[in-house]
Amino acid sequence: MATGYRATLELLPDSIDLDDFGVPINRQFEIRDLPGVYILGFDNLYDHRSRYLRGIRFDAARLADILAARPSAAH
């Protein structure tokens, strides 16, 4: 789900844990408290470019590789 040009958490539950920078605690873009929900566009999510459109492009490719490498649930 795209939330707009600025990264925002308005559509997520208030109960998710955030780090010191206000980013949901995550592992490889997946929110720890919401398995199956992934985030992009937050500052320093992967590196210093993650909040910019150019960085989001690279992060999206990284996330696509992560998802493609996971075993498929449908068999």
Rank of each mutant, 00 (worst) to 15 (best):
Y5A: 12
Y5N: 07
A7M: 01
T8Q: 14
L9M: 09
L9N: 03
L9F: 03
E10D: 11
P13F: 11
P13C: 05
D14I: 04
S15D: 14
S15F: 08
S15C: 04
I16G: 07
D17L: 07
D17Q: 15
D17N: 12
L18V: 00
D19Y: 08
D19V: 09
D19A: 10
D19T: 06
D19P: 08
D20T: 03
V23I: 15
V23S: 04
I25R: 14
I25S: 02
I25Y: 01
Q28P: 03
F29P: 00
F29E: 01
E30A: 09
R32T: 15
L34V: 03
P35D: 06
G36F: 06
V37W: 02
V37D: 03
V37P: 01
Y38W: 13
Y38S: 11
I39T: 00
I39N: 02
L40G: 09
L40I: 11
L40E: 06
G41K: 03
F42M: 15
D43W: 04
N44A: 08
L45E: 14
L45F: 04
Y46C: 07
Y46I: 05
D47Q: 10
D47G: 14
H48D: 12
R49F: 08
R51H: 15
Y52W: 15
Y52M: 15
Y52K: 13
L53T: 12
I56E: 11
I56T: 09
I56C: 13
R57I: 11
F58G: 00
D59P: 00
D59K: 00
A60F: 03
A61S: 09
A61L: 14
R62N: 13
L63W: 02
L63K: 05
A64W: 07
A64Y: 09
A64D: 11
D65K: 06
D65C: 02
D65M: 01
D65H: 00
D65Q: 05
I66V: 15
L67M: 12
A69N: 01
R70W: 02
P71H: 07
S72L: 08
A73I: 13
A73G: 15
A74Q: 11
A74T: 12
A74C: 12
H75I: 06
H75R: 14
H75G: 14
